[in-house]
Write a protein that binds this DNA or RNA. Structure first.
Lengths: 144, 144
DNA sequence: GGTTGACCTCAACTTTGGTTGAGGTTCTAT
DNA sequence: ATAGAACCTCAACCAAAGTTGAGGTCAACC
């Protein structure tokens, strides 16, 4: 149950110290300070970082991670159940994402058949269709 | 077979004019110019944009799209077969991506079972493991 | 008790994928 | 022939997700 220094967290999580500072500025992780103003982390920080990394793999922006973390308890360290709930949520997100990609792949395969891959004949990448989800701007996590 | 102006391409592709300029600077699309220096596009530009959008959905950077486009013929407009080859490549990329996400999901599901989601007990998000593919930096398309 | 490595803050810089605006030109319709 | 829409270039700006460096402090070992 010892508290961890930035360097230890950096080594164990495989994340640069500068990234840890950055995550802290963004409110994704917290730290206590020693008398000499150095950071000390509880061990739950490692789980938080694990979640951050998973989220990034799926292409979710850090802001979304922050919102998800807002559901974790603020006073006490998160319990096993808190983490489990969050993991379940992540899994759903992943499933959706996978389904989207499947859909995309099927359409792409269809387009190879017809030889089109055009914006008009093929609904793929067409901003009017359901897959493109409105398409009023690039890079929206929600509707992507 | 009429040539298209930027505005027409923008409307038909659902992409801002500024983005078209940007893609041109990056070498992803080409244009001819009128006597008055205005851009005119061949209709294959719409397919190029479709491919760009698909690539972005999958999280591929534009630079990778540029490399893929380098395989398209430079003198003549790309044939149906040229596009089909590119689509097939894209489909493989998508399949890999889907497989990765499946793998990730399975691990995440496992972690809910064990209640861990920790950097040590669980290989998920652990930089040492196979899934993380070396993990020497965030955001690498190749090994992601 | 000193030196070396780990740590601190703050500001500036990087990359990707664009957008916005200024200042000027061209095209089209009446 | 002229108004207005669409186009041009170029430079500056934006956001995300950090990294890099300057200048200074802390801590741990010998």
């Amino acid at each position: 149950m010892r508290e961890l220094s930035v360097g230890e967290v950096s080594r164990r999580a495989g994340v640069a110290v500068s990234a840890l500072h950055f995550y802290e500025r963004k409110g994704l992780i917290q730290s206590l300070r020693t008398a000499g103003n150095q950071r000390r982390y509880g061990s739950d920080v490692l789980r938080r970082i694990a979640v951050i990394r998973v989220a990034q793999r799926v292409g979710m922006p850090l802001e979304a991670v922050g919102k998800a973390f807002a559901n974790l308890p603020s006073g006490r360290p998160p319990s096993r159940d808190d983490w489990a709930a969050l993991s379940a949520l992540w899994r759903d997100e992943l499933e959706q994402r996978i389904a989207q990609l499947h859909n995309l792949k099927d359409r792409l395969t269809g387009c190879i058949g017809c030889g089109c891959l055009s914006l008009e004949a093929c609904s793929l990448a067409n901003p009017g269709d359901a897959l493109a989800a409105g398409g009023d701007g690039p890079r929206r996590w929600a509707g992507e």
